[in-house]
C-alpha cells in the first residue's frame, strides 16, 4: 500500500521555483490497478517519482506499507525500490550491453541474489512474458514489444508488490501496446498492484480506477468496475 499525504514538490529553477505538486493526497491499496492521467506539466511525472520512491517530496508524507520513506537515505530507498517496486518505462530503458536475461537479472544482482538462482528466475520470467526464444538476445535485436516485455520481466524480478508503468505503450504500435496492457492486466489478476501513468484513454480503460491530476492537484477519480465500462464517482 502506498499513501501520499499532502505531498508538495517544489523544483528550484534558478530565481523562481516551480511547484510541481501542491498538496496531493492519494492512497493506492494492494492489488489495485490504477491509471494516473493528466496533461503534460500536470505533475504526473513527479507523482510517479514519489510513488516509485525515486524522489522525495519537499513537504508532506509518503508511506510505503506504513513506513515513512521520506526519512530514509538514498541507499535504503534503492533497496526498497529494488525489492518492492518494479518499473516499466516508455523508452524501455534496457541496458544495451546486456542480453535479455542479464537485464532481467540486474535487479536480482543488486539485491545480492546468488547467480544460479538469478539465472533460473530470469529464464522463468522471460518464459512468463513469452520470450523463451529471445533469452540471449541483446535489446537491439528485439522489437519494441519484445523489449517492453523484457522490461516487464525485469520489473517482476524481485517479485515486487507494485508495478509502476510510465507510458508503457507510448513507443509501441497499437497491437504490441495492447499485448503489453493485457500482460499488465494478467499481472493484476495475479494480485500485483499496477500503477499506470498514461495519457492514452484506451490504455487507462484497463485500470479499475483512473486518477486525473492537473496543476499538481487531484482533479478527479473515476472508478471503472466493469472493464472498459466507465462509471464516475464524484469527488
Amino acid at each position: 500500500m502506498i499513501q501520499l499525504k499532502n505531498a508538495h514538490k517544489i523544483y528550484p529553477m534558478g530565481e523562481i521555483s516551480v511547484q510541481a505538486l501542491r498538496g496531493l493526497d492519494l492512497t493506492i491499496k494492494p492489488g489495485e490497478f490504477v491509471a494516473i492521467m493528466g496533461p503534460s506539466g500536470s505533475g504526473k511525472s513527479t507523482l510517479m517519482h514519489l510513488l516509485g520512491c525515486l524522489d522525495l517530496p519537499s513537504d508532506g508524507l509518503v508511506q510505503l506499507d506504513g513506513q515513512d520513506v521520506t526519512k530514509l537515505d538514498e541507499d535504503t530507498l534503492a533497496q526498497i525500490r529494488g525489492k518492492k517496486i518494479g518499473f516499466v518505462f516508455q523508452t524501455f530503458n534496457l541496458i544495451p550491453t546486456l542480453t535479455a536475461q542479464e537485464n532481467v537479472e540486474l535487479p536480482l544482482f543488486f539485491q545480492g541474489v546468488p547467480r544460479r538462482e538469478r539465472s533460473a528466475r530470469s529464464v522463468e520470467l522471460l518464459r512468463k512474458v513469452g520470450l523463451n526464444d529471445r533469452i540471449h538476445h541483446k535489446p537491439a535485436q528485439l522489437s519494441g514489444g519484445e523489449r517492453q516485455r523484457v522490461a516487464i520481466a525485469r520489473a517482476l524480478a524481485n517479485d515486487p508488490e507494485i508495478i509502476l508503468a510510465d507510458e508503457p505503450t507510448g513507443n509501441l504500435d497499437s497491437e504490441s501496446g495492447e499485448a503489453i496492457l493485457k500482460l499488465l492486466e494478467q499481472l493484476n489478476r495475479e494480485s500485483k498492484t499496477i500503477i499506470l501513468v498514461t495519457h492514452n484513454p484506451e490504455a487507462a480503460a484497463y485500470a479499475h480506477r483512473i486518477v486525473r491530476i492537473k496543476d499538481g492537484r487531484l482533479l478527479e477519480e473515476v472508478f471503472n468496475n466493469t472493464n472498459k465500462g466507465v462509471a464516475y464517482a464524484a469527488r
Binding site: 538514498e74 534503492a78 533497496q79 525500490r81 529494488g82 530503458n93 541496458i95 540486474l106 535487479p107 543488486f110
Partner: peptide, 16 residues
C-alpha cells in the same frame, strides 16, 4: 547517465 538512472531505479546502491 540514463543507464545509471535505470540501475538505480531497479535497486542499485551507490557502491554498486
Amino acid at each position: 547517465t540514463r543507464e545509471i538512472g535505470v540501475m538505480k531505479a531497479v535497486g542499485a546502491r551507490r557502491r554498486h
